[in-house]
Simulated assay, not measured.
Amino acid sequence: MAPHLSTFRALVAEQGAAGERFQLTVKEMNAQDLPEGEVLIRVQYSSLNYKDALAVQPQSRIVQRYPHIPGIDLAGTVISSEAPQFQPGQAVIVTGFGLGVSHFGGYSQWARVPADWVVPLPPELSPAEAMAVGTAGLTAAMSIDALERHGLEPSQGPVLVTGATGGVGSFAVALLAARGYRVAASTGKAAEQSYLRELGAQEVLSRSELQREAVRPLEKQAWAAAVDPVGGRSLAFILASIQYGGAVAVSGLTGGGDIPTTVHPFILRGVSLLGIDSVYFPLERRYALWERLAKDLKPTGHLDRIGSRRISLEQVPEAVESILSGQLKGRIIVEV
């Protein structure tokens, strides 16, 4: 059947009355409903990210127009392409750019996207494994890559990972351990110590140890670097505790957007704060990091450990509540 005659299922977010929760409903759609783009993809899997949960909250204003199909990640096969670099049947990944935010996303059996958003699926990964990684794993890989470009090496000392049971944190722990780093993992979930140690953490800290009521301009030097997808008040303590010349790669703000810090770590210890943006990260560097993720994680078995839970489109609304309440561990793969 020709693509323009076919229908497909998608999870659609629709805006209700002012201040009310958005409605999330699985609906039948057709190709004419999709936005413009050179590549039409049959989506097999997506994933659930904190940003996906925020996209269906009226107060977040992440999405500007509704009805909308969320999902900032997708993996599938090309149905048709106007771009010569992609052929029908080719396995591909799309993450970031406008997917699931300004452009219909991955919670849909079909997606049409610009060709310069598309990355070929590394042959070592299945589509499901790629979505176990998704934006979270890519962000972790970007964070470690930024720290290593800054000069980080395993011999320099332990690396702190905050929010360690979340998607970015879990992958950061596993990737750092696989590359020979000593990892200190911070979490608010005391029951998940064994999970973090299985991923490779040598030390597990309580979240409260980083959230000091009073942070001195400079604390005792504790870590060579940090991967921080949390931000907020704890980042002030982390910056004050990084070793001389070290760096913090920050990629999130679940702990808040304000940092009650001083300039002292930057001008007296030469500490650097490295911002990580997975949305517009250059395409040519994305594929190299996807290959690195496959090489470092595939042999460890951690892909299955981190992305062990799968849900259907119909189960996404319930899962959104779990991620917003901080109950999620690892990654959730959405079977489309």
Rank of each mutant, 00 (worst) to 15 (best):
G96D: 01
S80T: 13
P217G: 13
R269E: 10
S102I: 15
E219H: 04
L289F: 12
Q193K: 10
G246I: 04
G134I: 01
G71P: 07
Q327K: 14
G16D: 10
Q202F: 08
M1D: 12
T261S: 14
R149N: 04
G188C: 12
S6N: 05
L196H: 01
R331I: 04
R212A: 10
Q327T: 13
W117A: 10
V56C: 05
S308T: 13
R269W: 08
L152H: 05
H302K: 07
M1V: 13
G89K: 12
G307L: 12
V279D: 01
P70M: 14
A294S: 09
V316E: 02
E129Q: 15
Q193V: 15
A177E: 05
V39S: 08
R216N: 12
L11H: 07
L297E: 00
S6G: 07
L40R: 10
R305D: 11
E82R: 08
R149G: 02
E192I: 12
V113M: 06
Q315P: 06
P158V: 06
G256D: 06
R207F: 12
V248R: 02
A53P: 05
A201D: 07
W110Q: 13
Q243F: 00
V133W: 00
A222L: 06
L121G: 05
P67V: 07
L24I: 12
E124M: 07
R9P: 14
Q243S: 08
S194L: 11
R285E: 15
E314I: 06
S251R: 00
G37Y: 09
E36A: 15
A83R: 04
A225K: 05
S272R: 14
T162M: 00
L293V: 08
N30W: 13
S170E: 01
L11A: 11
E124V: 01
L218N: 01
G166F: 02
V279M: 03
S234F: 06
T7M: 15
T261M: 09
P265M: 02
T95K: 05
P88M: 07
L289G: 14
L147D: 02
Q15S: 15
E129Y: 11
G100T: 12
V250K: 00
A185Y: 01
G100V: 14
L196P: 04
D304H: 03
V161H: 01
G71K: 05
E219A: 11
A288L: 14
G76V: 08
A141T: 02
Q23N: 12
I323M: 02
V215D: 11
A115Y: 08
V56P: 07
V227F: 04
S6T: 09
A177S: 00
G326F: 14
A75L: 08
Q327W: 14
D277W: 11
V227T: 05
G232L: 04
I276Q: 04
R285H: 15
G106A: 05
P317F: 06
A136M: 03
G105K: 09
F22Q: 14
G134T: 04
R179H: 00
F104M: 11
A214V: 10
T261W: 13
R305L: 13
Q32K: 11
V12N: 13
G169Q: 03
H302R: 08
D116C: 05
E124Y: 03
P154R: 00
I332G: 01
A185P: 06
A224F: 02
I69K: 15
P67Y: 10
I144K: 00
A31M: 13
S60E: 02
F97Y: 14
V119K: 08
W110N: 13
D258L: 12
P84T: 09
R65P: 07
V271D: 04
